[in-house]
Design a protein around this nucleic acid. Structure first.
Lengths: 159, 159
DNA sequence: AGAAACATGTAAAATGTTACATGATTCA
DNA sequence: TGAATCATGTAACATTTTACATGTTTCT
């Protein structure tokens, strides 16, 4: 695929667990090409390049996938704000939690919509998509359950 | 507190949702001092500085807390690996999920241990700690539930 | 014809980690 | 006395975002 299409795929397919910007994709593709891990074929358009993995590139990808997964640094702006909730005050905290709950509901609906469209994909890819999708669903459900907890705790504080 | 104590507090108290390294804390403290947002008092030790917020610093903190929370960039190495699960194979995927499940159980136990030690703190701080702790618990529970889902999906694939 | 989408890249700035260097204090 | 902990900082490096510049193709 092209660099542009790669970005689209990352946003649309991996969006809930991965992100890359153009500023990383294009230099990375150039590096990978220099290392012989991808090669570039002229596309149907003169101004675009279709990249594909070379056999060496596939081997390198597999090796990378086998390396231990790095966990992302935790940096949750919402929880940081709620930790300093005494400074913000009850009402502002409640607003933040309600916003987060609504956002989680939206995410959940999005995942459910994708799940119904998944039936047509061939195995075993479908299963692996379902696994990553299930992670998104559980995470959204957890956010909703937490928000309800938090609202109760906040209500208890006001009383 | 000192820069060192600040780091300790971030690791131990905010650890599940925030992280800072010394390389950021010390330059940041120097900047904040230059801006008059924190001031430095000589501590009981000659080689250490106790920092405290100035009134301007408190106001700035409140203003920052009121800004919309930035969500962290999603980058989940585990889900990325499972998305390419067909390359990794069933057994390696299962191993990854089991590892993640065990790690979530450990996290959950840690949160429960903290929760029992929380009873003594004064309100309203206690409630706000409970809210952030609850987020950790729900997230760990979600990880466990997802892992069980994923193991079933993987088992279905093998059959 | 014009707007939206497709497509590629670079440069500057911001952000963040890691490793290192140094020394004081506390505790066994 | 020696080890662990407390304490401060810098420098090099790596990562990542953002803004910009440019042009093509498709669709209405």
């Amino acid at each position: 695929m092209t660099g542009y299409a790669l970005r689209e795929a990352i946003v649309e397919v991996l969006g809930h667990f991965w992100r890359e910007s153009f500023g990383q994709i294009y230099p990375a593709l150039a590096d990978l090409e220099a290392q012989g891990l991808v090669r570039r074929r002229e596309g149907d358009r003169p101004n675009s390049s279709l990249f594909e993995l070379t056999p060496e590139g596939s081997a390198r990808l597999l090796a990378l996938l086998r390396e231990p997964a790095t966990q992302q640094l935790p940096r949750n702006g919402l929880l940081l704000r709620l930790f300093f909730g005494s400074m913000l005050g009850h009402d502002e905290c409640k607003r933040l939690v309600l916003e987060a709950r609504a956002e989680a509901e939206t995410r959940l609906a999005g995942f459910d919509a994708i799940a119904t469209r998944l039936g047509s994909d061939p195995e075993p890819e479908r299963t692996f998509m379902q696994i990553t999708l299930s992670a998104g669903r559980h995470s959204a459900l957890a956010a909703i359950a937490w928000a309800d907890d938090a609202l109760e705790l906040l209500a208890g504080l006001k009383r």
